[in-house]
Simulated assay, not measured.
Amino acid sequence: MNNLVSEQEVTERGVYNEVVSLLAHMDDQDKDRIALRIASIARTKLASVVRVLLEKLQQDKQNRVAIYYILEGVLQQDTGGLEIRLVKNIVSLASDQMRETQEATNEVKVAASNTLVTLASCYFDHVMYELHCHLKPPKLPEEFILVTLANLSSAYGMVTSIFCFKVIVFHLRTGDYSLYLKMLQLNRALLECVRACVERQRIHCSC
């Protein structure tokens, strides 16, 4: 048993060292080539690679955009077997960083948002739950919560639109049109879906 644990620790350390070494050369090598190499490692060592990338996203503020780009590529693989604890860590970190008001640049926020959209292909409920936690009427949500919802709507359709429906209707009922107008700016297709939901709700109530 001790030998098995030792072998696992050696493997983890090897993955950690290789990924860290690749990330250290992002400034003087082709980022796409590095991203492909890390994605290749993740095919057999997914959890180990994700742990390293999450650690570096917290430590390396200068290269966050590039690291998110690499993480998004890793998550485009089959991630169905990823530990739920790691899924929650990805969601929590990306959500926090895309809502930062002082340190994070718009590029980091976009990268974090895109990562959540990619992760939602396998873990939709986890991503939506996190976004739901930041949709608390009558407070207007942060911009990138809405951006992510708009992108989820484009990627996954009506499910996201129905989710937004209740929140938007609440604001309209209170006379607050700011959320509706913000969503209109971000994604007209999403509002078309919301309008369809409103119409179906109206027809249902009149029956």
Results as ranks from 00 to 15, higher is better:
75 L>I: 09
83 E>C: 00
98 M>G: 01
120 A>K: 04
98 M>V: 00
101 T>L: 10
74 V>P: 13
99 R>W: 00
93 L>N: 03
93 L>S: 03
104 A>G: 02
72 E>I: 08
112 A>N: 01
72 E>A: 13
81 G>S: 15
116 L>F: 11
85 R>D: 14
114 N>K: 15
90 I>F: 04
100 E>K: 12
100 E>S: 14
108 V>Q: 14
119 L>F: 05
89 N>V: 02
116 L>C: 08
73 G>L: 04
81 G>R: 15
82 L>P: 07
115 T>H: 07
104 A>C: 08
83 E>W: 01
90 I>M: 05
74 V>Q: 13
108 V>K: 10
93 L>I: 05
120 A>G: 07
107 E>F: 11
107 E>K: 13
109 K>D: 06
80 G>A: 10
84 I>F: 08
113 S>G: 02
74 V>N: 14
113 S>R: 02
111 A>I: 06
94 A>W: 01
105 T>C: 02
101 T>M: 09
107 E>P: 02
100 E>R: 12
111 A>M: 09
102 Q>A: 14
72 E>R: 15
84 I>S: 09
109 K>I: 01
117 V>N: 09
77 Q>S: 14
113 S>P: 00
113 S>T: 00
115 T>M: 06
111 A>N: 08
82 L>Q: 07
94 A>S: 13
75 L>E: 11
97 Q>V: 08
99 R>T: 05
85 R>N: 12
104 A>K: 04
108 V>L: 10
84 I>C: 04
80 G>M: 10
79 T>Q: 09
116 L>Y: 05
95 S>R: 05
97 Q>T: 11
86 L>G: 00
116 L>A: 06
77 Q>C: 03
92 S>H: 11
89 N>K: 14
